Simulated assay, not measured.
Amino acid sequence: MTRAIIRAAEWTLTEETGEGAPRAVFRVACVDCGAASEAVDNQPEPVEMWALRHTGLNTTHRRFRLATEWFWRVVPAPGNPYFDLEGTAGR
């Protein structure tokens, strides 16, 4: 087994597109009372509707905090010794 220390290598930060990985997860919380929507994959519309309904039921609750999770992956860039080892050419 050969062991090597790579002191400098280029890497690329990219969006995670693997099977089952959502593009994004959205959730909104009312700043006034702390009530929060469910987390929803890929579509912001359900949390937008939640905020509008929440304000409709609580007319003084008009401020919301949106939390969005976006998934990334780091892959070896061309010239990185792992690039050919991991078969990342062509990604």
Rank of each mutant, 00 (worst) to 15 (best):
L52A: 08
N80Y: 05
R27S: 12
E45N: 03
E45I: 06
M1A: 12
P46N: 05
W11N: 02
R7C: 09
G87R: 06
R91P: 00
G18S: 11
E16I: 02
A8V: 12
T60Y: 04
A77T: 12
E45Y: 01
T68L: 15
D32V: 06
R91H: 04
T12N: 12
P78M: 05
A8R: 13
M49F: 12
A51C: 13
G87S: 02
A35Y: 08
H54V: 03
R91G: 12
V40S: 02
T59P: 15
A35D: 15
C33P: 15
P76M: 04
F71N: 03
T88G: 01
A4Y: 10
A77N: 05
A51K: 04
I6R: 12
G56I: 03
A67G: 00
P22L: 05
E86T: 06
R53E: 14
E69N: 11
G79D: 06
N80C: 13
W11R: 02
L13Y: 07
T60Q: 08
L66Y: 08
E15T: 14
D84G: 10
S37P: 08
P46K: 05
N58V: 04
D84S: 07
V28Y: 02
W50Y: 11
V40T: 09
D41I: 01
P76W: 02
P44L: 07
M49N: 13
C33M: 14
A29G: 10
N80A: 06
R62I: 11
V25D: 05
H54C: 04
G56A: 15
E10L: 09
V40Y: 01
T14H: 07
E16F: 14
R27K: 15
V47Y: 00
F71V: 05
F83S: 03
G18F: 00
G20I: 08
G87H: 04
P76N: 06
G87K: 04
E16C: 15
R91K: 07
A51N: 04
L13H: 07
L52V: 07
T12L: 14
S37V: 03
W70T: 07
R65H: 07
C30Q: 11
I5T: 14
T88I: 08
T2W: 01
A35Q: 08
W11A: 04
A8L: 07
T88Q: 06
P46R: 06
V47H: 01
L66I: 12
P22M: 05
G18Y: 01
P76C: 03
